[in-house]
């Protein structure tokens, strides 16, 4: 069986995987990082979004072996101890979640937008969320959260 080595949330990890093992399976089942969710398993819902080398990707549509040598960040890698990341804090402040299932993917996707655009408009946020599905909120407070989170990051409160 192939062995894969990668950095996950700043820590070097390695593990034996089958070639067909998806990145999300490796994260959840081998590393027990269950904050990354599997919603649809068909690259549509975005609950599994993580960052690979700083760029958002759907971890249900990548092989673990493709991440050899990569830097992977999951939702567990954002908070600094008890201090939430500004984007996480913004979701709490703005009631950007109800059941919370889509939230890790929403936040990881939002961070990729904030990296490119520190002051996204409502329209830009809504277009960016094309690949993230929420079945509770109607998106309104998610959009507010992301705009507030991006502003907080730009204001230097972390990121």
């Amino acid at each position: 069986m192939p062995t894969v080595n990668m950095n996950v949330n700043g820590e070097a990890v390695s593990g034996e995987v089958e070639a067909r093992t998806l990145l999300v399976q490796f994260l959840r089942e081998k590393l027990r990082l269950t904050g990354t969710h599997v919603g649809c398993d068909t690259s549509q819902c975005g609950a599994c979004v993580v960052h690979v080398d700083g760029v958002s990707a759907k971890s249900c549509t990548m092989l673990a072996v493709q991440c050899e040598g990569a830097d992977v960040t999951t939702i567990e890698g954002l908070a600094d101890g008890d201090a939430l990341h500004p984007m996480q804090e913004a979701f709490r402040d703005n009631h950007g979640l109800q059941c919370g299932f889509c939230t890790p993917g929403m936040i990881m996707s939002a961070l990729d937008l904030a990296r490119r655009n520190s002051a996204p408009s409502e329209q830009e946020v809504r277009e960016w969320l094309e690949g993230n599905i929420c079945r509770c909120t109607g998106y309104h407070n998610i959009v507010k959260s992301i705009m507030a989170g991006a502003r907080a990051m730009a204001a230097g409160q972390g990121g």
Partner: peptide
């Protein structure tokens, strides 16, 4: 094309 994550890969 697709969504941002599809466009990233």
């Amino acid at each position: 094309i697709g969504d941002p994550q599809v466009r990233n890969r």
